[in-house]
Design a protein around this nucleic acid. Structure first.
Lengths: 146, 146
DNA sequence: ATAATTTCTAAACCTAACTTTAGGTCAAGG
DNA sequence: CCTTGACCTAAAGTTAGGTTTAGAAATTAT
């Protein structure tokens, strides 16, 4: 086993992810590994960076699909340049700023509606958003609209 | 049917929620209804306010359990006072501010780690959080740490 | 050469927050 | 009265993001 490659267990202990989560992320296309003669995964070191990014992105509330999308700008296989990572960071950052702005706007609206104790439902911008949520189909909905 | 009471369909069209979601929320204890002679739900008008709050709280990423918790400070049955609603709004607001602050802190840390292109994993505060995530058990994890 | 770890795959299970379906019952209009 | 639309319950299905389990094969340690 070449020194520059990592087993799934090594990747797990270095990222803090579980082995099963890493397999799942591979299946979802967030990270790539090739196989050795015996069929076991061997990860390039760059996988550590990708996975660390995945962990951070999830803390911000990004879905796997969105993360895959952002990461798809990086070269799959070997050490992406600082430039490539920077582009990813920029796109990520833009999403993030939008999310924070939306949360702040909601908070400030809430002050006007509930904060005053009147909770006027006829005029409130939060409460009368024309039914967005109702049209979104099944499944968990946490933060989905933001 | 007394004019001050609402059928589930009326509640649905006024809140924008689906009928099935309202039944689900009732089962979860977020809203209450009594039954008429035929066994159908009859909601007090105050249910509109409770449900509107539920919708807003969900947009902020609060779980049903947390919302039930916050709403439990209100009288179950009839029109809570402005004072009672204000107390709820205050608690809600505090949670919210904490959430926004955490997001901003993460964003700023990200700038230091990924933003610069170096993505140093040894020194980064985001990446080296001592494995919190790995110890949190199964299930979706979106924003859970925040 | 064993024994003890790791790893492999596939499939089933889990939680949250709902929706959909199936098989009836209730209520309002003509 | 009868039909049509709203309502009822219970149970199963759905999505996201993983975990758990089972049984087999590969690696590492002794």
């Amino acid at each position: 086993m070449p020194a520059h490659e990592l087993t799934i267990g090594q990747v797990a202990s270095r990222t803090g992810l579980s082995v099963s989560a890493i397999r799942y992320y591979e299946k979802e296309g967030l990270v790539f590994a090739h196989r050795n003669a015996g069929g076991q995964r061997r990860f390039p070191r760059s996988a550590l960076r990708r996975l660390s990014f995945v962990i951070a992105a999830q803390k911000f509330g990004f879905t796997i699909a969105r993360i895959r999308d952002v990461l798809s700008e990086l070269p799959e296989d070997e050490a992406p340049s600082a430039k490539a990572w920077h582009a990813v960071a920029l796109e990520f950052r833009a999403d993030l700023d939008r999310k924070i702005a939306a949360l702040e706007a909601l908070r400030d609206n809430l002050e006007g509606c509930i904060g005053c104790g009147c909770l006027s439902m006829k005029n409130c911008k939060i409460y009368n958003r024309d039914d967005e949520a109702a049209r979104e189909g099944p499944g968990p909905r946490v933060l989905r609209g933001i």
